[in-house]
């Protein structure tokens, strides 16, 4: 049976691929295509954050009683990433490739250190604490990631 760690780690890599495709359009540069790619990346990121903030984190907090622990830190980092994404969008709207490059690099490192903490520590903790309901949670999260209404 696949774990929550597998499911969400796989989605991290999907988000990475969406992030990289913006760079490819900017290299040409095709601003309109880059804009679309950024929108797609933003949607992928938002679905992922949504699945965690609305489904996974509340269940983890309920099961462990930790509301000010790792999930609070992860929510704060989601907030920082949303802000970085908005700055990337502003740079792209201004057709400022250099500014975009700096903001994208910032988001990439922010996102990957965040993913590292989730994949190495938080998701395995979720798999452990939410063992009995893993299958059900996996389905809900899978639907949320695909944008299926709950």
């Amino acid at each position: 049976m696949s774990t929550l760690t597998d499911l969400l780690t796989h989605d991290h890599r999907q988000c990475d691929a969406a992030f990289a495709s913006i760079e490819h359009h900017l290299r040409q540069p095709d601003w309109a295509a880059a804009d679309n790619a950024l929108a797609a990346f933003g949607r992928a990121l938002e679905s992922h954050f949504g699945a965690e903030e609305e489904i996974l984190f509340p269940r983890f907090e309920e099961a462990t009683g930790m509301t000010q622990g790792p999930t609070a830190v992860m929510r704060e980092e989601h907030r920082e990433m949303r802000a970085a994404l908005a700055r990337m969008a502003a740079a792209l709207a201004a057709h400022d490739a250099e500014e975009y490059g700096g903001e994208a690099e910032t988001l990439l490192i922010l996102m990957q250190q965040h993913n590292m903490k989730e994949e190495n520590i938080l998701y395995p903790l979720c798999d452990r604490h939410l063992h009995g309901e893993r299958e059900h949670l996996g389905l809900s999260i899978g639907h949320r990631l695909e944008g299926v209404p709950q």
Partner: peptide, 23 residues
């Protein structure tokens, strides 16, 4: 990678507007 990121992170966590990595 690590030095500018840590600089950025510490500024952001202190609620200071941080220049991006490339700056």
């Amino acid at each position: 990678k690590i030095v500018p990121f840590l600089a950025w992170l510490h500024l952001t966590q202190a609620r200071i507007k941080a220049p991006n990595m490339k700056r």
